[in-house]
């Protein structure tokens, strides 16, 4: 029995005159990994950003329809975007650590939430680094600049940083696209670990990755949600011809 975490209805998004998302209706389950796949420019990142209202930061974006998270419409007027984003963490395609130390990167979120107690902050650092399977690699160098880590470590630190504000949902936009196979494997393992506690939505261009890590897969094409189903179904027996062409790499 699965519980719905995120539900969208008739969702349209326009960048100025240009429509980037068309009538998206999707139902994302809690404590599962949902993958978004689709060709470049089809609106995956745009849709991901709809879910934590990052598009508010871009001028000229118009959104219609509903996005319900635990039955609350997050585009309602009385919603506090700042609190919403604390509940919904985000990991970006390119690691975007602050030019601060590893420790400072991790405590940034807790600190802006008013946590000042050094002991509590230390605990958070240890917990999140353990969760991100990074503790052994960085525990002796917490005061080194975050940007001195390797690319894969940086990306895992970004995940740890997102976990530090104790979100319920984690949105990941191609988190492993710039990484080597070993780092990618570590991140996929991490996603697997995290899913018991968090609802995860991941955008990926890597079909195998989608197949490996996700429970549900959504296929987007030209701003439309073409097909959305169990990952095994999408990859073995998709209902639509377009989906089949895409997942088998026969896309025109």
């Amino acid at each position: 029995m699965k519980e719905t975490k995120i539900l969208t209805k008739d969702l349209n998004l326009y960048y100025g005159q240009k429509q980037a998302l068309k009538q998206i209706a999707i139902d994302i389950p809690a404590n599962k990994v949902t993958a978004f796949i689709g060709p470049s420019g089809c609106g995956k990142s745009t849709f991901l950003r709809v879910l934590n209202r990052m598009n508010d930061l871009i001028d000229n974006v118009k959104i219609t329809g509903e996005v319900l998270i635990e039955d609350v419409n997050i585009y309602e007027k009385n919603i506090d975007v700042v609190n919403l984003r604390k509940k919904i963490g985000m990991v970006f395609q390119k690691s975007n650590l602050f030019p601060k130390t590893i420790y400072e990167n991790l405590v940034y979120g807790p600190k802006i939430n008013g946590i000042r107690n050094k002991k509590v902050l230390d605990e958070i650092v240890e917990r999140t680094l353990t969760q991100a399977a990074l503790l052994d690699e960085v525990k002796d160098r917490l005061n080194d600049p975050g940007l001195s880590l390797s690319g894969g470590q940086q990306q895992r630190l970004c995940i740890a940083r997102a976990l530090a504000v104790e979100p319920e949902i984690i949105l990941m936009d191609e988190p492993a696209s710039a990484l080597d196979p070993i780092s990618t494997a570590k991140i996929e393992e991490l996603i697997h670990e995290l899913k018991s506690k968090y609802t995860i939505v991941i955008v990926t261009h890597n079909m195998q990755q989608a197949a490996r890590v996700s429970d549900q897969t959504a296929f987007f094409y030209l701003g439309e949600l073409i097909e959305y189903d169990k990952t095994t179904k999408i990859f073995t027996n998709p209902a639509k011809k377009q989906t089949e062409d895409y997942v088998t790499g026969r896309f025109g």
């Binding site: 934590n52 602050f98 970004c158």
Partner: peptide, 23 residues
């Protein structure tokens, strides 16, 4: 200051002023 750093800050639930002040 790269936009990605601002995005990271907003993504962690920072307000605009916190982002300006700390990042």
């Amino acid at each position: 200051v790269p936009k990605s750093h601002r995005d990271a800050s907003y993504g962690l639930g920072a307000t605009k002023w916190q982002t300006i002040k700390y990042v």
